[in-house]
Design a protein around this nucleic acid. Sequence first.
RNA 1: GGGAGCUUAGCUCAGCUGGUUUAGAGCAUCUGCCUUACAAGCAGAGGGUCAUAGGUUCGAAUCCUAUAGCUCCCACCA
Length: 889
Amino acid sequence: MELSAKYNPSEIEDKWYAYWMEYRLFHSDPDEREPYTIVIPPPNVTGVLHMGHMLNNTIQDVLVRRARMQGKNACWVPGTDHASIATEAKVVAKLASEGIRKADLTREQFLEYAWEWTRKHGGIIMEQLKKLGASCDWDRMNFTMNEAYSRSVVRVFVDLFNKGKIYRGVRMVNWDPKALTAVSDEEVIHKEEQGALYYIKYKIKQHNSPFGDREALDYCVVATTRPETIMGDTAVAIHPNDPKNAHLRGKTVIVPLINREVPIIEDEYIDIEFGTGCLKVTPAHDVNDYLLGEKHRLEVIDIFNNDGTLNEKAQIYVGQDRFVVRKQIVKDLEVAGLLEKVEPYTHTVGFSERTDVAIEPKLSMQWFVKMGELSEPALEAVMNDEVMLYPAKFKNTYRHWMENIKDWCISRQLWWGHRIPAWYLPDGRFVVAEEEAEALKLARAMTKNKALASTDLQQDNDCLDTWFSSWLWPISVFDPEVPGSGEEVDPNIDLQYYYPTSDLVTAPEILFFWVARMLMAGYEWAGGYPFKNVYLTGIVRDHLGRKMSKQLGNSPDPIELINKYGADGVRMGMLLTSPAGNDLPFDEALCEQGRNFCNKIWNAFRLVNGWQADDTVVQPAHSAQAGEWFKESLRKAVIDMNDDFDKYRLSEALMKLYKLFWDDFCAWYLEIVKPQAGQAMDSTTLGTARLFFDYLLRLLHPFMPFISEEIWQHLRPRQSGDSLMIQPQPYADSFDADCLSHFEVIQQAIASIRTIRQTKNILPKEPLELYVKGEMDERLFPLLQKMANLSVIRPDGPEDGRNVAAFLVGTTEFFVPLGVLLNVEEEVKKLHDDLEYQQQFVASVKQKLKNEKFVQHAPEQVVAFERKKQADGEARIKAIEEQLAALGG
RNA sequence: GGGAGCUUAGCUCAGCUGGUUUAGAGCAUCUGCCUUACAAGCAGAGGGUCAUAGGUUCGAAUCCUAUAGCUCCCACCA
């Protein structure tokens, strides 16, 4: 069989993915084995794969494939999220491009468009994951708006409501006066704006005056950027410890132009240094003011219409736009003598991402979940390490957030999502139920009106926050009947077997949005934590350190990368420099490195594949030695990699494997056992080499599934249905450290001889002689001889020290007689430099040992080690001095 | 403003409870090689006051304090 000199991924990747699918190797059913479960963080249903997904899913696939090869029943559940905000925004934009406005559609019509969009674009991302090699159990594909899943979301809402954990309340939302809708915090873009700070005089009302309630000359000054909202003022606030405003305590002031009397309140929220230290309080139009208002029980006066014009509650400027009013009111205040001054002022203002108009904070009725009790077990689980976060530094952040948790606003003014299962009665009261029929029953009971019809009920128009469905993900993908009625006869087998899942791999920015809430849901409805370990990935950045985003256009298309470098190459590129929790500065050079590694593996295979065994050939000593050494090296690597995996240090595990394969296996082992040109190979060595290759492929498979499978299938005849995917991982629990260190001495000696060749211009082909003086494992001489191309190895030093290149490994001296004349001066200088270095080294060690406190306090081992350092150093000095003497230096 | 974290070679990072020759790796760089597996390669080499300043200690990249710079999360100041 003819094999190309370059590995060609595109020829084999689809073939093997189809093969794995054909034999259902990704599929999992509960059995007696230990389960290993991952649920995918569901990407947006209509999204496309970006680099963050690449990283995230590569990590998951590595973990899943490894667990599968460790004999666990591995199950990776795929699926997508309906992503209400993002998807609805896309649908609205698409309709707009066709000249259709959402406002002109009924809910049903809009949802029809949305489903059409979802059917058209949904699932693209899952197909892309297949290109990456993701070994998901596609039979378990899920979607947060599936019928069953949706029922579970509604059931959870009803359950929480019945437990008294859901309530309605007023909340400040980001109102877009142009789109006439609330937008989420994520859709608000904060921009710096050059504005002004207006200082407005509020007259102080004089009480207890002997002359009655007459207006005084006295006033306080309030600084504001939004003078047009003063008609909504219901208080002026000062700091309780503010001496310069102390005279205002207990007074009331008059709101200019409309002459409303409002109280002076005191609160520590006020910044004494800002402006005059007096804050106008407008609860309807500022988040902080609203909180102040709530605290001090102030009246709330909403002076704006939905389109940003003023309403009749403003009393003046009714019907005019907020920005027109701002200009006009400043003039009017000035005329009235109530404007003290205007200062230029730079501040940030929120703008709507969709319409680019200034966001108006607006109060509205929303649904909330009480978080207090729900959050307790979720906080505890992480703090007592029942659930582990990797890296652990996120524990602090997590605690900080959980301890200051606020109630969760779960309603969204959107149509694409799970509609809130609340029905309003004509009298304004409401009932909560899973279905309309049930709601009607409840409503009839509540009103004691049996004639009440379903047409009298109006279901809430809002839908639920996306996270309110995705927090159930690790439960509902296995059992959408949770929370059940408590009357189920058969417990759900899948949930029992796969839950809790093993590892969750996700981005740190959704630690609170998603991870924390899944923990809460797990304890609330599934009796315990939803996952044992949370691996928080880094954020993928470009080489300038910017977050990759569509807007910047700095994100490469993952599929193009796969086409260019192969899936295995890209996977390796993603994993090479991505320790958990650290940012990943992405560079295509990393994929190139991955591709090069594939090529290296491929060519190593070509070499081994081309060898023919000859039973008449006896195994050379060096080949046997190389085999013994590589076996130990492999064992050590397996142990080290297991340790790395235990700590979720995937990139380090991969780097160890990279070096094991490239350096130890290719550069050393294969080079040692490689027969001379034209010579045959003994069957023992060939068998061993193939066995090693097999082990290496097993180690490689979780990281690079395609190339490893391709080569494994070539390595020996296979039955159909066989796959590397399901072979056990190599196992080791110990290794021979002496064997490795003896070999290392040989490696260093060989490298030194090669350096001599290079500096002396001696070709590798030309054999050299070698003298070895000192301790050395002589059994390894044949190996040394082959790799350094030595004609002979002799004990002790040469009699004539001239024209001999010398070097040290440890304390062992090596001499290479050279046919050419040495540049004595150069050699002497080199030896002097080395001597000086060694002398300084020994001096520093001596200094340390002379210190009585060191000898007293330091552990015995450490002192003994220092003594050995001294002895070795002195031995080396002696050797160098001898060499200098031999050169007559 | 509150919280968390980071700063080690040109780049990306290891370096765990202080002692393991005078700090390691990969990539990049430089030198020499088209050696019949691989130039997407082989062989070799160079490169670091461990951000700065103090402190603790017999001993500090490692522990403590301050300073500077950077990153992230939360709240965003009328």
